[in-house]
C-alpha cells in the first residue's frame, strides 16, 4: 500500500515543485526590493525566453537528432501572432489567446514543413529549415498591411512580467522533460541513436520526427509571444538566421541531449553577455572568444548528454555527511 502511494506521489515531483516555488519567490522578492532592477529584469526575460527556445530546440536537435536551423522562424510566428492580436484587442485574455494561437500556428507551420523535409538527413535538413525560416521572414516583410513590413511593429501592449515568464518557462521545461521521460520520448531518442534500428523495432520514425519538430515549433511560438509582449517592439530582422544560430549555440554549449544543460547555458550566456555590455565595442569578439575557449575545453558542452538530477544532490549530501562522520 505504501509502495502504491509512493509511485503515485513521486517524491521527486514534490522536490521539483518546492524548488520551483522557491526560485519563483526568491526572484519575486529580489524584484520587489529592486535588487533585480529594471535593467536586470531585461536579462531575466532574455534568460527565460532563451530557456524555452533552447530546451525546445534541444528536443528536436539534441534528443531526436534532427539538425534544425529554423527555430527563429517559428519564434517569429508566435511573436507576430501574439502582437497583432493584443494590439487589436488589448486585453489580458487576448494576450493569453495570442500566446496559444501563436504557438498553434508555429506548430502548424512546423508540421507542414516537417512532413516533407524530415526525410532529409543532416546537412540537407539544416539547409531546408534555414530556407524555411528565411521564407517566413520574407513573408513578414512583405505582408506590410498587417505586419508593417521591414519596420516591424511597435507599441505592442506589454503583458509579460515575471509571473508569466515563470509560468511559461517552467511549464515548457516541465512538459518537455516529462515527454522525454516517457515511451514516446524514448522513441524520439532512439531515432537519434540509430534510425535504422529504431524503425526495425517498430517505431514509425517519420511520425516521431515530425512530432518532435511540431512540438518544438509550438514551444518556440510561445517564446516568440513572450518576446513580443515583453520587449513590445518586433521586426522581421530580429528573427533571421543569426537568431537561430544564437539558439543553437545555447543548445550546443549546454550539451546536446541535456535539458538541464540548456537551462544552465541559457543562464550563463545571458549573464556573460550582460557583463560584456561594459566592453561595448569588443563585446561580440569577447563573446565569440569565450565560446570558442569553452568549446575547446568541453566539446561535448557543459553537461554532455547528462542531466543534473535530484539524485545527484542526494549523493553530494551523502558525501558531505559521511565526511563529517570521519
Amino acid at each position: 500500500m505504501r509502495n502504491r502511494l509512493k509511485t503515485l506521489i513521486n517524491p521527486n515531483i514534490i522536490i521539483r515543485i518546492i524548488s520551483l516555488a522557491l526560485a519563483f519567490t526568491v526572484v519575486q522578492v529580489l524584484i520587489s526590493v529592486n535588487v533585480i532592477n529594471s535593467y536586470l529584469q531585461i536579462t531575466l526575460a532574455t534568460i527565460c525566453i532563451n530557456i524555452i527556445l533552447a530546451v525546445s530546440l534541444n528536443l528536436i536537435t539534441g534528443f531526436t537528432g534532427q539538425f534544425s536551423l529554423g527555430h527563429a522562424g517559428f519564434m517569429s510566428i508566435g511573436a507576430y501572432t501574439c502582437a497583432i492580436i493584443t494590439m487589436r484587442y488589448g486585453t489580458l485574455w487576448s494576450f493569453i489567446l495570442g500566446v496559444f494561437l501563436g504557438a498553434l500556428l508555429a506548430a502548424l507551420v512546423g508540421f507542414l514543413v516537417g512532413l516533407p523535409t524530415l526525410r532529409l538527413q543532416g546537412d540537407y535538413l539544416a539547409i531546408a529549415t534555414l530556407g524555411m525560416s528565411e521564407i517566413i521572414r520574407v513573408v513578414f516583410v512583405n505582408l506590410d498591411v498587417i505586419t508593417n513590413g521591414a519596420a516591424g511593429l511597435s507599441d505592442i501592449p506589454q503583458f509579460v512580467n515575471w509571473i508569466w515568464l515563470f509560468v511559461f518557462t517552467a511549464g515548457v521545461v516541465w512538459v518537455i522533460a516529462n515527454f522525454l521521460n516517457s515511451s514516446h520520448g524514448r522513441a524520439c531518442i532512439s531515432i537519434r541513436e540509430d534510425e535504422i534500428a529504431s524503425s526495425a523495432m517498430g517505431i514509425n520514425t517519420t511520425r516521431y520526427k515530425v512530432m518532435a519538430f511540431t512540438f518544438g515549433a509550438f514551444c518556440a511560438g510561445i517564446a516568440g509571444a513572450m518576446y513580443s509582449s515583453y520587449f513590445y517592439v518586433i521586426k522581421p530582422d530580429l528573427f533571421g538566421f543569426l537568431k537561430s544560430i544564437d539558439i543553437l549555440v545555447i543548445v550546443v554549449f549546454g550539451g546536446l541531449g541535456s535539458i538541464t544543460g540548456s537551462v544552465l547555458a541559457a543562464v550563463l550566456l545571458a549573464i556573460m553577455s550582460t557583463f560584456l555590455q561594459a566592453f561595448s565595442e569588443i563585446r561580440m569578439i569577447l563573446y565569440a572568444v569565450l565560446l570558442v575557449a569553452i568549446m575547446i575545453f568541453r566539446p561535448q558542452g557543459l553537461m554532455g548528454s547528462k542531466e543534473i538530477t535530484i539524485g545527484m544532490f542526494n549523493k553530494l549530501g551523502n558525501m558531505f555527511s559521511s565526511k563529517k562522520e570521519v
Binding site: S183, H184, R186, I189, M201, G202, I203
Partner: peptide, 10 residues
Amino acid sequence: RIAMHKNVKY
C-alpha cells in the same frame, strides 16, 4: 523498453 513501445497504451 524502446522495442516494446509499439504496445504502449498511453
